[in-house]
Design a protein around this nucleic acid. Structure first.
Lengths: 127, 127
DNA sequence: AATCCTTTTAGGAATCAATCCTAAAAGAGG
DNA sequence: CCTCTTTTAGGATTGATTCCTAAAAGGATT
């Protein structure tokens, strides 16, 4: 494991935040200013492939990375974009899977809401 | 409604396929060769906003458009990318929603599998 | 620590879906 | 027809991500 990959891995796993590649790049450069953007993307890809972190594709926004590697749903604020992890109740998908010809190899569940912070600050209409 | 938007709308709603903007653009140009790419994107956006069609964001691939406007899960082949609509069993999300502070404003559920066609053709490792 | 070989990096160019810009064309109404 | 507003074509631009290449770093083995 190179120093670069180690640093990137630590940043993703240090906090429950779901950061974008760009945010990770900025944080990493505080400690290693020579780090290249391409290196961040490549290593995030490698870490995802290795199953050490997860990539979370966002609607009309850059992807985010999640330190939690077990599959689980996400709760996303439609206004500010904040992402929270949820726990998947046992066998919730079973009824759906039952009707299929083959096995499910993975799933992705996103629930959208307006987070308490954004709900409080009602005023404008800016997304 | 302009002729352009009508054409785009008809293409999306004519078949259960989940086409990309580019595919829709190609099909539309067979009937209206002067149609601009930007017009396709803008009108797809307007149709989505109006709730007449749905946009389906794909992982590492261009978005696809769905004529079915009621929220529902999608079954996606990991190998060929084919998308199928599923029916959402009543209140499947209720147990999840129960633990939240506020109401869910929407959801997105993707199930991944290998479709029968791809499962049959086992050989290479492409994609 | 010198040698050889493989992998990774920095830096920047390239890609590609999607958006934006602007003058011209097309509705919409009266 | 004549104005006013909206939409379009066409191309430039953006922004996230990937790709390219020579240089640097690892990593064994002595």
């Amino acid at each position: 494991m190179t120093r670069q990959r180690e640093l990137i891995y630590r940043i993703v796993t240090a906090a429950p935040e779901h950061r974008t590649a760009e945010e990770i790049y900025d944080l990493a450069r505080e400690q290693m200013p020579s780090l290249a953007r391409g290196t961040v993307y490549r290593n995030l890809g490698l870490l995802v492939q290795a199953g050490q972190i997860r990539k979370l594709e966002m609607a009309d926004a850059p992807a985010r990375y999640d330190r939690e590697r077990r599959p689980h749903p996400h709760l996303i604020c439609q206004r500010c974009g904040r992402v929270e992890d949820l726990v998947m109740p046992e066998a919730l998908l079973a009824p759906l899977e039952a009707g299929l010809p083959g096995p499910i190899t993975g799933y992705e569940l996103k629930l959208y809401h307006i987070c308490p912070a954004c709900r409080g600050a009602r005023k404008d209409g800016a997304r």
